[in-house]
């Protein structure tokens, strides 16, 4: 591009999509769905020692309509499943989902009559963070991978509703 040559280092040219996606990934607002011990690790990740604010994700929203990242941290039992599904449906597109820990990913050790064997039985999942519970570092790694997906315009909610919602091309 020629404009940088003319105006010096004060300009950067890019596409609108990558600028928007950069803004999105740098200010994700997570909805904390902490139902078990993973929730404690998630709180530690959000708190000052590990500090998700470094990635721009410190604005935790307890209203799904204001959040674009659902962190499901903990065991989801059959009685909680409709609640989780409803919260996911209430979040506005585009949205991303992290299944944090073994329980949210696959039911974990709870192979019994009460526990959903992975939240992907109910809602689409973008990132599985393994561990029981995962360390804050693991959650942060998963989150930065989500950021990569956001920058590239990828995500289950984007592909699932590609027809209905106009998606900015990258």
């Amino acid at each position: 591009m020629g404009i940088e040559l003319i105006r010096g280092d004060n300009f950067m040219t890019t596409t609108l999509a990558s600028a928007v996606n950069w803004a999105r990934k740098s200010s994700m607002w997570p909805f904390p769905f902490g139902t078990a011990c993973c929730g404690i690790e998630m709180m530690a990740t959000l708190a000052s020692k590990y500090d998700m604010a470094r990635f721009g994700a410190e604005a935790v929203r307890f209203s799904p309509r204001q959040a674009d990242l659902l962190i499901v941290a903990g065991t989801i039992c059959n009685k909680m499943a409709p609640v989780l599904k409803r919260i996911y449906d209430q979040m506005s597109d585009p949205k991303w989902v992290i299944a944090m820990g073994a329980c949210a990913s696959c039911g974990g050790i709870f192979d019994n009559y009460t526990v959903v064997q992975g939240i992907d039985e109910i809602i689409p999942v973008d990132m599985y963070v393994p561990g029981c519970p995962p360390s804050p570092q693991a959650l942060m790694y998963g989150f930065t991978r989500i950021q990569d997906m956001v920058q590239k315009g990828r995500g289950q909610s984007l592909t699932a509703t590609a027809e209905a919602v106009p998606v900015l091309p990258v």
Partner: peptide
């Protein structure tokens, strides 16, 4: 009180299959 209202069976009976409907 603890199980969903549409639940079938009584899970703490010894005869109940451990993994429920998936069993």
């Amino acid at each position: 009180i603890l199980n969903p209202d549409n639940f079938y069976g009584y899970p703490l009976r010894k005869t109940y299959p451990l993994r429920g409907e998936r069993d």
